[in-house]
Design a protein around this nucleic acid. Sequence first.
DNA 1: CGGAAATTGTTAGTACACTAACGATCGCCG
DNA 2: CGGCGATCGTTAGTGTACTAACAATTTCCG
Lengths: 147, 147
Amino acid sequence: MSEAADLLAEAPAYRLDEQVGFILRQVQQRHAGIFAAAFGDDLTAMQWAVLAKLAERGEGSQNLLGRLVSMDVATVKGVVDRLVKRGLAETGADPDDRRRVVVRLTGAGREFYRANAAKALRVTDETLEPLSERERGQLLGLLRRLR
Amino acid sequence: MSEAADLLAEAPAYRLDEQVGFILRQVQQRHAGIFAAAFGDDLTAMQWAVLAKLAERGEGSQNLLGRLVSMDVATVKGVVDRLVKRGLAETGADPDDRRRVVVRLTGAGREFYRANAAKALRVTDETLEPLSERERGQLLGLLRRLR
DNA sequence: CGGAAATTGTTAGTACACTAACGATCGCCG
DNA sequence: CGGCGATCGTTAGTGTACTAACAATTTCCG
């Protein structure tokens, strides 16, 4: 009974504003804005991610670090370079593997982390501000499954 | 009864992997991968977004176009330049306002849109593949409120 | 042991993404 | 009408992001 109707529905409407990819980018943009407002010229979100991971896990090779923060090896290099230039991280040789470059936080890096972890949490909070506690959990649960 | 416990909880744990911003970036990465697998070297997601918007709305100034796709004015220029170089769009002067650059699709651009809209829909579909129909609606609803 | 395969990091090239500074033009208001 | 603020586009500079090609090692396997 619905076969004729199916024929009429042949051209599925493509509306950019309804595509996940598009909305995702807009949400990312808003988050980036909130982060920038909180951290100003101190650090970008990527640099903070690497710093936080180093604080969590101690030192590690660039490669491992890249995997932990879901960043390309070529990209992580640039981020680490900038952290080193800001004096928050330092690199050294791995005695066991001469290919490796070990990255670790400096004292200033650990200090920066301690001083700003609460602020970083507020960035997350402000990003999710339009949602109730229950909705936040829902959203995170759904997003995690799309990773 | 819980006041003593509250004092112990003073340092809120910051776990990178639980922050929306971080998860959001991972989901974006997966989506970008799916898009690239579908469109290969033909077009990036951004270029497709501009193309689709032009197909939806007809011609418009670079500035307007930027607003419609949530893209910086400086960024949109580069994207439009690349579409022009690929022969999918063209620019012209606005007779009413000599500051403006009007952007519109070429015949090849319209043709490309028609030929690929269904594929673009499949990219969205594959991105959301791990979720049920109901969950997809939930996710989009939540994300939209974070724009 | 020795050589092929895999891993690690670097560099170059392309494509977003945003800020700031600039010049050209438009529109409004006195 | 005349000027001044707002808008539009371009350019330069910084920071992700990914691919491809490459060199230096290390590892594994015959």
